[in-house]
Write a protein that binds this DNA or RNA. Structure first.
Length: 491
RNA sequence: GGCGCUAUCGUCUAACGGUUAGGACGGAGCCCUCUCAAGGCUUAAAUACGGGUUCGAUUCCCGUUAGCGCUACCA
């Protein structure tokens, strides 16, 4: 059974790319009945923040996928230290006493890579031991075996055969001068200890992997299988960054924007992976069944957000699709908190009546605030009385329609069919088109022309509210300047 | 600079040498219709460039270009 891990470092907010890496790992684990491990890679004590850790948990919990095992690297420093000693003891690592300040200047990146400081790499063990014993600070570097072998290679499950000349791999650090392990050391020691079978991570680690293979070998443990994922990039082609691209890269932006966790997962899956059968709207189980590393692409995928809109239009569309696929009860329940945030006195029972009327008119849960406002308002916010006048009609027609509607609604049965029959009969009686009959009523009752279908809306609103709002509309009409000639259309 | 990865409509992608280069989002238009949606239909839109290999290249190879990544005592 495969064991995979997602290993974020708490140095920033959980962003969209990390979320996707988590999801792909999770999907791989579930597809194969394996184990999903969450490991916090927090060896960089200076840069870790609690806020960042909270953000990671917030985001992951919202995704609602879960994990099976949890670890923190800061709890496992002894293991890392021990692993470094194992490597050092074999002579595959050496102490580098170059002061941190001098290092930058001495490494020359002019032509070719910096590989190592010869006097450090070649330093006799006795001298190294003596200086260490004297308390001189040092970093422990991996002694890349350039003489013994020409290259390091591994097979990537996404990118295929990978090979790199040892002459192009520098003597990277294992332990810092403060004794703490570097990412490479801690990560590999933990992956070996936790028996990780597949490392699925961003392509930015592809070239690091050669170093990791060397570490696994030095540790005497079989390297896991590797699968690197294409990166997610911003619309300008640059890599996603919180600083440059703002909220568009943060998972919580989608959560707060009214996305269903699963539709976000669905969206992210489609970035860099495809089931190859043209299907896009997929349930969680379908995703689990369909997911394979063979389906992962090799080129970077762009998250198509804009400056004025953090949401990729495909993500929005997928969200709308999933909203429509949700049982109304679920939808109603999830809508309630968003309605309450908007200041509406919403409860589940009331929302259950409204949800069917708006489910095809909202793209995000947050849209409930603008789409369903008039269901909750005690009194409609002010609107332009001119809106009450129907197409090809005038003030008199509007008044007649509303008078008629008022009298009909006093006795009509408040159901779709009852209202349908009554109001259509009213239109016939007044000799106006149904559209001319319905629009003034809709505006009177909703405060605007754009709204859900009329009969259902009236039924949910209830007789009292409808009558009251129509009465108010009539008053507004009466207050309109009668003498004003109809504003003719210019053409 | 060095090393590496990548390259199909604006975007996400399909086509494991032979297709009128397919689907989706977004755009445009039409239909349906009590408004708005939803839904249905139609439409514009792509193989980065140059060489090979081959009867035949989106597909395989080389080069160019471009983008990205790594080149930290960050991860």
């Amino acid at each position: 059974m495969p064991r995979v891990r997602f290993a974020p470092s708490p140095t920033g907010y959980l962003h969209i790319g990390s979320a996707r890496t988590f999801i792909f790992n999770w999907l791989f684990a579930r597809h194969h009945g394996g184990t999903m491990i969450l490991r916090i890679d927090d060896t960089d004590v200076e840069r870790n923040t609690q806020a960042s850790l909270d953000s990671i948990f917030d985001g992951l919990r919202w995704l609602d996928l879960g994990w099976d095992e949890f670890y923190r690297q800061s709890d496992r420093l002894d293991l890392h230290e021990q692993a470094a000693q194992t490597i050092f003891a074999q002579g595959i690592a050496y102490r580098d006493f170059t002061p941190m300040s001098a290092e930058a200047e001495e490494k020359s990146y002019g032509d070719g890579p910096w590989l190592y400081f010869p006097e450090m790499r070649e330093m006799p063990r006795a001298e190294s031991d003596r200086r260490a014993a004297a308390g001189e600070p040092f970093v422990l570097r991996f002694r890349v075996p350039r003489e013994a072998r020409a290259s390091v290679e591994f097979h990537d499950l996404v990118y295929g055969e990978q090979i790199k000349a040892t002459a192009d791999i520098e003597d990277f650090a294992l332990l810092r001068s403060n004794g703490l392990p570097t990412y490479h050391m801690a990560s590999c020691a933990d992956d070996a200890d936790l028996k990780i079978s597949h490392i699925i991570r961003g392509q930015d680690h592809l070239t690091n992997t050669f170093k990791h293979v060397l570490i696994f070998e030095a540790l005497g443990s079989e390297p896991p299988k590797f699968a690197h994922l294409p990166l997610l990039i911003a619309p300008d082609g640059s890599k996603l960054s919180k600083r440059k691209h703002g909220p568009a890269v943060s998972v919580t932006t989608y959560r707060d924007g009214g996305f269903l966790p699963h539709s976000y997962v669905n969206f992210l899956c489609l970035l860099g992976w495809s089931p190859k059968n043209d299907r896009e709207v997929l349930t969680r189980q379908e995703l689990v069944d369909l997911f394979t590393l063979e389906g992962v692409n090799r080129s970077n995928a762009m998250v198509n957000f804009a400056e004025d809109n953090p949401f990729d239009s495909k993500a929005v569309w997928l969200n709308a699709q999933h909203i429509r696929n949700l049982p109304v009860e679920d939808l109603a329940r999830q809508l309630v908190p968003f309605a309450q945030t908007a200041g509406f006195p919403a409860d589940e029972a009331r929302m259950l009546q409204i949800a069917p009327l708006i489910r095809e008119r909202i793209e995000t849960l947050r849209d409930v605030a603008t789409t369903a406002d008039f269901f909750f308002a005690a009194e409609l916010p002010p609107y332009d009385a001119a809106e009450l006048i129907p197409q090809k009609g005038d003030l008199a027609m509007a008044a007649a329609v509303l008078q008629k509607a008022h009298s009909l609604l006093r006795s009509a049965e408040f159901t779709h069919d009852g209202l349908d029959a009554a109001l259509r009969a009213g239109a016939t009686e007044l000799k106006v088109k149904t559209g001319q009959m319905f629009q003034p009523i809709r505006v009177a009752v909703c405060g605007r022309k754009v709204a859900p279908p009329l009969f259902e809306t009236l039924a949910v609103l209830g007789r009292e509210t409808c009558l009251r709002r129509i009465e108010r509309a009539l008053v507004m009409l009466a207050a309109m300047p009668q003498a004003m000639p109809p504003v003719g259309k210019l053409s």
